[in-house]
């Protein structure tokens, strides 16, 4: 009685494609690809990247270099910014510069700092977390205290103080953000490593004569990457906002470099008279962070579908 359905299943499975073992990555990617919101966000992110790369093209099409001050046609007779018009599509700023062109150039700063600082954070955090979790002992204790210190320091205050002492530049911004962000990554990685280093396959590798460094990077590291990747995608928008915040407080990039936080900062004094001056750079910043956050959420769900499955139950 029971034999028949089993036979049918075997038969249909044989005629269908043979079942392939798919790794975490393939599974996550296939889930992510079906996530509409995440895919739209990815498209938006790619568009922003294109705008950043094509910033000189934007300047060429409008005919306005990013730092050119049009004090005659770009400012009203009272010296106020011009509203959006056929010459300046998104209006002008307080110095008569084209906001559209400056937004395009500002995208370069946001993306570059976002990606480089996040990369730095993740590399340092992963290395420290691996060392602390795998080596353990006194190294773990020392690193744990250092992590505590970095996480207890009022980040923004110390960052402002540091930048004010060293003078603002892109390198300083990246280093400061990286310096204060690696600790959370290290904490996540350490926790993961602690559980993975006790697994049988690590023991197996050790009994085969693999050295600590090899085990750490070949056996342990690939298995902690999923949470790191999720954290990384969600860290990019945080870094972008932090960079913009430093600029807003006057410690971003030295003028006249166009960057979103700095634009909003100078727009602050004009929010009653020139809404476009706040709204367009603000919208650019918000759309960017929103796209990264939505995409990051999708990545998280793709790697950890537990929550979504629970909902379908």
């Amino acid at each position: 009685m029971n034999a028949q359905p089993v036979a049918t299943v075997t038969a249909s499975a044989a005629s269908a494609k043979p079942i392939e073992g798919r790794g975490t990555w393939a599974l996550a990617w296939s889930r992510l690809r079906r996530d509409k919101v995440a895919m739209i966000s990815l498209v938006v992110i790619l568009l922003i990247v294109v705008v950043a790369i094509a910033a000189p093209l934007v300047a060429h099409v409008t005919g306005h270099p990013p730092n050119e001050q049009y004090r005659d046609i770009g400012l009203s007779p009272e010296g106020l910014p011009r509203a959006p018009n056929s010459t300046f599509w998104l209006g002008t700023d307080d110095l008569g510069r084209d906001i559209l062109v400056r937004i395009a150039y500002g995208a370069r700063v946001s993306l570059l700092v976002g990606v480089v600082a996040t990369g730095l954070t993740v590399v340092v955090g992963v290395l420290v977390g691996l060392a602390a979790g795998y080596v353990g002992g006194w190294l773990d204790t020392v690193l744990a205290r250092v992590v505590d210190v970095v996480l207890s320091v009022p980040f923004l205050l110390v960052a402002i103080a540091l930048v004010s002492v060293t003078g603002p530049s892109m390198t300083v911004t990246v280093l400061v953000i990286g310096f204060f962000s690696w600790a959370s990554v290290a904490r996540i990685v350490r926790g993961q490593v602690l559980s993975i280093r006790e697994r049988e396959y690590v023991e197996a590798a050790r009994s085969l004569g693999a050295g600590s460094v090899r085990i750490m990077f070949v056996d342990v590291l690939p298995n902690v990457l999923a949470p790191v990747i999720v954290y990384t995608t969600l860290l990019v928008p945080v870094v972008i906002v932090t960079q913009a915040t430093l600029s807003f407080l006057g410690l971003g990039l030295p003028p006249p470099t166009a960057d979103w936080g700095g634009m909003i900062s100078s727009a602050q004094n004009y929010y009653t008279t020139a809404w476009w001056f706040v709204v367009f750079p603000g919208a650019a910043l918000l759309i960017t962070t929103l796209a990264f956050n939505l995409f990051g959420d999708g990545v998280r769900d793709a790697f950890d579908p537990r929550l979504e499955q629970q909902l379908r139950r």
Partner: peptide
Amino acid sequence: FYSMPPFLLGIL
């Protein structure tokens, strides 16, 4: 609001 930069929300 999670994606909103604090200074932007303040000005708005």
